[in-house]
């Protein structure tokens, strides 16, 4: 078939079918949050003293970080679905910078002999287990939605899906976890989310080609 013929065929199929990409991405994000919420309440639920905890800055700061991560990741994720669209990579530094600043403040406020106890916490293994578990459903949904897009960097798009799923899962998990120190968050939350990002990147390189 020569190119003129191909163009004639494609032109006959001009009218756009199916939902808009922005609707697909927004819908997938909403479903991903809902699925993460269901998994969270089914497996863990909020900690019993959440009303008290909600009055402490360390507990609240966990949500500042995880929400900053989820929001910036959602922006970059959506941009990666469209060829040639500018990606706000720099905004992704917001959550890590917030954590680093909080770690610095924590090290100033807390006596050195308590550093290790706060860093290791009581829930490291739980954190490394449940953040990925809560994130698995959202990751699958986000990868599926990305297939409707046209990621010219499939591995990066997959990584961002993992990062975003990790941010959503960490936001829920933070409501359960009794370890609120930035030293704990900077280590164990980060490890779990990096793991998800790596899984997303590997999946993206395989599943997101078009």
């Amino acid at each position: 078939m020569d190119t003129e013929s191909l163009i004639r065929g494609l032109a006959g199929d001009a009218k756009q079918a199916g939902p808009r990409l922005s609707a697909v991405l927004a819908g997938a994000l909403a479903v991903a949050v809902a699925v993460a919420g269901l998994a969270f309440f089914a497996m863990l639920g909020p900690r019993p003293d959440i009303a008290l905890a909600a009055e402490t800055p360390r507990f609240l700061f966990k949500f500042v970080v995880t929400l900053a991560l989820a929001l910036t990741a959602a922006g970059a994720f959506s941009a990666l679905a469209r060829p040639g669209a500018p990606v706000a990579w720099r905004l992704l530094a917001a959550a890590p910078l917030l954590v680093l600043a909080a770690v610095a403040v924590e090290l100033l406020l807390v006596p050195q002999d308590q550093w290790e106890a706060r860093w290791i916490g009581a829930n490291a293994a739980q954190c490394l287990t449940f953040i990925p578990l809560i994130a698995l459903g959202p990751l699958a949904i986000l990868l599926w939605a990305m297939r409707r897009g046209a990621p010219t960097r499939p591995r990066a798009a997959g990584a961002l899906a993992g990062l975003l799923a990790g941010g959503i899962a960490a936001t829920f998990y933070a409501a359960h976890c009794a370890d609120d120190s930035p030293l704990f968050v900077a280590t164990w939350y980060t490890l779990a989310i990096v793991l998800l990002t790596a899984v997303g990147a590997t999946a993206g390189a395989r599943l997101l080609r078009w």
Partner: peptide, 24 residues
Amino acid sequence: LLAIHTKRHTWRSDAPVRPWIFAI
């Protein structure tokens, strides 16, 4: 051309079109 056709819904009608074509 086929890729542009199957992915034409990924162009935002208020975005520049050439960078979109080049990237594809």
